[in-house]
């Protein structure tokens, strides 16, 4: 019984859902604040993301008459659920995730693909012009980053010889120098993650000055609040995945590792913000060109290198 309560506690409170949402609010705040400070603005106070969330929760939810009401109202939850489920396979507290099994990497990658698909369906079934264009752009962007992203996160597993994230982290924590082999894919992964999160310069699916806010243009109130929450959680999910694969430095002491985890996530966030702050929005066709011309060859080269190294190491 106590075991069961412990697991529930882990799932829903720490390091599960509650931690995920609270920390993602914090990351969202830091994202906005640092972004603002780099632009010479003041930026929001620390409680702004939470205040936004609560305000949206209290607002009226309008479902367009033309929209498919079921898909329209279910998609925010699908998006949030996918991210939450995926997060429990990531090591947060210490080396081990809440759950892990030998193929959880595939599950996580699968869950990672759900939020953009949910946003696509939400936009497509909103039946509005801006959201239709936004939805098609989301799919186009998925075609652009999906292959480089998958190959770059799977390349490190070739050396580790495992498809479990916990085991992978454990392997690289034991051999920290091997991480430098994966440096090229770490860079491509960072760029593909930025692309996946639809942050500038890859924010053309929600380009404000072209298609207002893309796929989610018809959303309001509670449904929008959950989409935003899912998006924040997705940011933390992606950052945690990145730190688990490419920055698996560990001490072995559980709470020190946790602090290390916080430091690592903040560092990755800083890199993502720097990317966002220094570039103009890239057009969707150029995103496609960039991902396939530059990212994909680099990741493929890494796969070949890792396959060769696997025999040597």
């Amino acid at each position: 019984m106590i075991e069961f309560l412990k697991i529930l506690c882990k799932l829903f409170i720490f390091p599960g859902f509650l931690f995920l949402s609270v920390y993602s609010f914090l990351l969202d705040f830091l994202d906005r604040k640092l972004y603002a400070r780099m632009q010479n603005r003041v930026g929001p106070p620390w409680y702004q993301p939470l205040a936004d969330f609560l305000k949206l929760i209290g607002k009226k939810t309008i479902i367009p008459a033309d929209a498919n009401a079921v898909i329209f109202s279910v998609m925010p939850l699908v998006s949030l659920a996918a991210v939450t489920v995926g997060f429990i396979y990531l090591p947060v507290l210490g080396k081990e995730a809440i759950f892990s099994f030998s193929g959880d990497f595939v599950i996580v990658l699968y869950l990672l693909a759900i939020p953009p698909l949910a946003a696509f369906l939400a936009g497509w079934y909103s039946r509005a012009v801006y959201s239709t264009i936004g939805a098609t752009r989301i799919l186009t962007q998925m075609f652009a980053y999906e292959v480089p992203l998958f190959i770059s996160v799977l390349a490190p597993t070739l050396i580790a010889g495992t498809w479990s994230i916990t085991e992978l982290t454990g392997f690289y924590a034991a051999h920290p120098l091997y991480i430098f082999i994966n440096l090229p894919v770490a860079i491509t992964a960072l760029i593909s993650f930025q692309c996946k999160l639809e942050r500038a310069p890859f924010d053309s699916p929600e380009a404000e000055t072209e298609i207002v806010s893309g796929a989610l243009v018809e959303y309001s109130g509670r449904l929008l609040a959950f989409f935003k929450l899912a998006h924040n959680c997705e940011l933390l999910f992606v950052i945690s995945l990145f730190s688990a694969i490419y920055l698996p430095f560990m001490t072995g002491i559980i709470w020190v590792d946790f602090i290390l985890y916080i430091v690592k996530t903040l560092f990755i966030l800083l890199l993502l913000i720097l990317m966002r702050v220094t570039m103009a929005r890239i057009e969707i066709n150029n995103t496609l060109n960039f991902c396939w011309k530059y990212l994909a060859p680099v990741t493929l080269g890494q796969v070949i290198l890792n396959l060769l190294l696997r025999g040597v190491l």
């Binding site: 632009q39 010479n40 500038a200 310069p201 380009a207 404000e208 000055t209 570039m279 103009a280 929005r281």
Partner: peptide
């Protein structure tokens, strides 16, 4: 308009 808000602010 081209999504380069940093330059806009500066």
């Amino acid at each position: 308009e081209i999504g380069f808000d940093t330059m806009f602010m500066y």
